[in-house]
Simulated scan of single mutants.
Amino acid sequence: MEAPAPAPAPAPAALAPMPEISAPIGLLIDVNSGRVLFERQSHRRFVPASLTKIMTSYVAFELIAQGKLRLDQRFTMKPETFAKWHGVGSTMFLGNMSQTSVADLIEGIVTVSANDGCVVMAEGVAGSVPGFTAMMNAEARKLGMRDTHYNTPNGWMDEGQTWVSAADLAKLSMALITRHPALYQRFYGHHQATFGGITQNNHNPLYGHVDGADGVKTGFTNEAGYGLVGTAIRNGRRLMMVVGGYDRPVDRAEQSRALLEWGFAAWTSHPLFPKGAHLGEARVQEGEARSVGLVAPHDLALALPAGATGRPTLAIRYKGPLRAPIAKGQQVATLVVKVAGQPDEALPLVAAQDVAKGGVLARLRDGFLALAGR
């Protein structure tokens, strides 16, 4: 199925030189185009430390969106949890038997990297840490995070039982932002937070240095070294980066800032379609409806080296017919973008509406239409 091509986008040009990136693991993605601008061992598994907390917040966001968790719910710091986690690493200073709202726990987890807050959240939501990490791993599977396993909700050292990859962290962070934009905007991007009368700064080295930086999370333990999942948005264009394994925080700070600035300066974004644009239809089998609309989940664009030109050709691809049920917002197709001299890009397209599984009549209808060649 062919999609209409937009106006021509501005032929290969020399790419501006990259800054030095000494991290053993690195990834930079132009989110609107899906283009990988820089990659180094992005599928290598590594210990994430507090980068784990991105998934902890994602699970909370999913439950809130489903109506299974409320921001005003309060969870208790159990005595045994207090004894184990009080003053361990980064903390929000939760007292023994204190009750804390889900909103404050998320703020503590995201902004001050609260280890105690993660465990209180896990036990409050699932009854136990293993119960919550099972939920984390289930969400990872849904997102297609193939090089990830969680054994802890806070990333504290666990002899290597928790691991991730840069590619998986980028996928998770993009889902966090696109699936839950309002919650992301509410809880991420804060420079500091105050708990127990103590104000603590967010350690994200992008804040105050990179225009448009609004996330995502830092990580550090002696086991993991210094890592960062960082993102910034300018004029609707978002870049997402992951670096891991630095020995010194100053190198993480300076190089991550330079990498994002290079991404914005060395590459230009050529808009294709705005968020919500209807690009086509996909056939559906065994559903109450025989087709579902395909829409852009966010602004879609073509990323080219600065000064490069090229006319894109576009095509919609999906494995069809799709099978019901289908949820609104579920990725069901891709928009393949081709430009001479550039690698093909595959951008996500999502279902415009829910399609419930049909009953006997729907199956009879599909069978009859198949016999009729329709």
Results as ranks from 00 to 15, higher is better:
H209M: 10
P348G: 10
V119N: 02
I29Y: 04
S165E: 05
P48N: 07
D299S: 14
A49W: 10
G189N: 00
E281A: 15
V250Q: 15
E281C: 10
D147C: 12
V112P: 00
A282G: 01
T76G: 00
F38W: 13
Q255R: 04
L369E: 09
E159W: 10
S256K: 03
L302I: 07
G329V: 08
T91F: 13
L364Q: 12
A351Q: 00
L272M: 07
G329Q: 11
Q255M: 11
G276M: 09
V295T: 08
Q161H: 15
L314D: 01
Y226D: 10
A122L: 01
E288K: 15
T194H: 07
A49R: 08
G227W: 08
M136N: 08
H278S: 13
V129I: 14
E345W: 10
T162V: 02
P6L: 14
K84W: 06
N202H: 06
I233E: 15
S98K: 08
V120K: 06
R238P: 03
V339E: 04
A134E: 11
H270A: 14
M174A: 15
T52Q: 09
K357L: 14
V102A: 11
D354Y: 05
G67C: 10
G131H: 04
Y318R: 09
T221A: 00
M77W: 05
D158C: 13
R74F: 06
A224W: 04
P4F: 10
D299T: 13
M97N: 14
T268L: 12
L294I: 07
D214K: 07
P79N: 07
L63H: 02
A126E: 05
V36C: 03
P271G: 05
Q330E: 15
Q73V: 01
F368M: 14
Q66V: 10
V88Y: 13
G280Y: 06
L105W: 00
T152I: 06
L94Q: 06
E2K: 15
L349I: 05
K142Y: 05
G34L: 08
A114G: 15
L94A: 11
F264V: 10
F368K: 14
H270L: 11
T199C: 05
R374T: 00
